[in-house]
Write a protein that binds this DNA or RNA. Structure first.
Lengths: 359, 359
DNA sequence: TTGAAAGCGCTAACAA
DNA sequence: TTGTTAGCGCTTTCAA
């Protein structure tokens, strides 16, 4: 591994940043009142121009616009929100912005929000229920019109006042706990069951499951899918074939290595999510004999591995889009009852899941 | 490719969502006034309790807290912001939330914001200058305290009133255009030059460059690095060895295939960013003879490809962290002059860049 | 320790 | 077509 560059270089550019501390409230922002004074019109006329309302002569509009440009006026949305009661923004609480699974989901939520003229405010809970609550309530304090939540916790009664106050709320990826709310999920159970059945169909009977922490809904559902597939095939699952825990590479590595060792070693592995899968691939790649692998969640470049990675793919963008659309339908007032929407998963075969058992 | 699931299933849960449209401004949110009335205290006392100020007896505080809980009161930050002038939020304008390069960057900005008690509002410009401006100004209208921008455009004079008003601003990944502002970059030129020099050191002379649109600063700098490395080695670059354009797979595929064909075919390729790299890998994988490849930006699983992918890696989290920290130092008032900070890149050798020329 | 009054910048309602 | 007034929910100031 070569190293290029020796550390960060700092190059002063110019020294003309105004050194003074702003004295006025918002730095020195002009208000509509200032614009009105400069243009020699009333406050409301400025408001009309800024908001593109009708009933202003061209000449007046021109004068106002000139004052706006000259002063660099920008409407203060805080004041506007205070008056109007709608912020035209929605909040998204997810687990980790940096996880490739959530990128497309966020982007999809953003696109829907944008189509409705709303901004997106988002934050990561880092799988911590307290942080999830803190974030969600901070968003509510800013009076977001709606909330899309990928929950970390399992008790969302803290949102009851918000729901009562009309904050549109949709849960994604995992259901809400102890409140009645819309939820959009992937078919985690069915996807895992089919993925494991696929391995069984290719001759495996000793199949390991390496998953996330069982308190996470998706992890539990996928484990259930695994157990069901095994049971349906009449295979008795041994305790040593299952490992659940944090997705930390060290834990996953150890668990995977153990499953692949000893006389009872499994011949195939089903991994419970993308974080687990990448580590499992590394472990398998180091071993002499091939091990079949099916992973939950698709991964970039999965088709270029040797062998290609067989996965149960969920459509994270569709999860986000569906949730956000539902959110805006709540805001329209066109929805009545909370629903549970389940999106299908897709088994994509690329080679790793079709390897026969090593005998 | 197997298909699991036949479409989305909708399961009604219960039908007790309140059907009425909220009549009150914010649904039916209680205000401090309501809390004060219920607790039998003055408005300011409620404010003191909500904000944890001193000068309230335990007994009074208890009564107020009781009223808060009973009513489900949540402070309205819009009103607070209007009075205080600071929103405790910062904006992030990036290119595409779904791009794996920006995930860690966003997350890093978020972590710094969180450490400073601020929320993050973000949006994607989709590489469209108008959309960048629209987004940045919308964020300013919400009076974010600061702005981190990955610019799509090259003229940021529209931000002058904002800068004057004291909105802290830091550009990342690409410099600001026509205004004087802080900017945090990777060493795109040096990284590309070293990456290409690496190929030259392994015996290549006919090296192709497939990059992004040249109007994007990073793309231009990387091209410059390529040209410099070639020049330094005394190699005359032919026009057909360079292709710049959108990162769309179709365009990249065609460009790569053309470079690899004919009597003048290159023996190695340097790709200008992660989007380009993934497509180039696919094209190369389809070909009979090996082609050396070095890509700008690291990619997940790059180590597991055959051969492993040699890359010039930038630390996107460090870019975000550095920018955000600088932003908050602007807000502290501890900074004077705008600077240009350049972070080093790192050449990571994994095999694809060490392949000798096919002869 | 507590509270009354003013006002942040805007929009809604109404008047001219 | 234009302007005036009140008030959104909070914090600041100042007085009790």
């Amino acid at each position: 591994m070569d190293e290029t560059g020796q550390g960060q270089r700092i190059v002063p550019e110019t020294a003309r940043r105004s050194a003074g501390v702003p004295t006025h409230r918002y730095g020195n922002r002009p208000t509509m009142k200032d614009v009105a004074a400069r243009a020699g019109v009333g406050l409301k006329t400025v408001s009309r121009v800024v908001n593109g309302e009708s009933g202003v002569t061209q000449e007046t509009e021109r004068r106002v616009q000139e004052a706006i440009d000259a002063l660099g006026f920008r409407r203060n949305d805080s004041a506007r929100v205070l008056r109007k009661g709608r912020t035209a923004s929605i909040g998204l609480v997810l687990e980790d912005l940096a996880d490739p699974f959530y990128g497309p989901l966020s982007r999809a939520v953003e696109e829907v929000a944008r189509a409705h003229g709303a901004l997106l405010i988002n934050g990561s809970s880092a799988e911590d229920p307290d942080r999830e609550q803190e974030l969600a309530l901070a968003l509510c304090a800013r009076r977001v019109d709606g909330l899309v939540i990928i929950p970390a916790g399992d008790d969302h009664r803290y949102l009851e006042p918000e729901l009562r106050a009309g904050v549109a709320t949709v849960f994604v990826d995992r259901p809400a706990g102890r409140i009645d709310a819309d939820v959009v999920l992937s078919d985690n159970f069915g996807g895992a069951r089919d993925g494991v059945a696929h391995l069984i169909a290719h001759g495996h009977r000793r199949i390991g499951f390496v998953g996330d922490m069982p308190r996470i809904h998706t992890a539990a559902e996928r484990l259930r899918g695994y157990r069901t597939a095994m049971e349906d095939a009449g295979i008795t699952v041994e305790g040593s074939w299952m490992s659940l825990g944090v997705t930390d590479p060290t834990r996953v590595r150890r668990a995977t290595e153990e499953m692949l060792s000893g006389p009872d070693a499994v011949t195939a592995i089903f991994t419970g999510n993308n974080r687990v899968t990448v580590t499992a691939i590394r472990v398998i790649a180091e071993r002499a004999r091939p091990v079949a692998l099916v992973g939950f969640d698709d991964i970039e470049l999965a088709d270029l591995l040797q062998p290609g990675l067989t996965v149960v793919a969920q459509d994270s963008a569709a999860l986000g889009r569906t949730a956000a659309e539902r959110l805006f339908r709540q805001l329209d007032g066109t929805l009545l009852a909370p629903e549970r929407i389940e999106l299908p998963t897709r088994l994509i075969t690329r080679g790793s899941g079709e390897l026969p058992p090593a005998s």
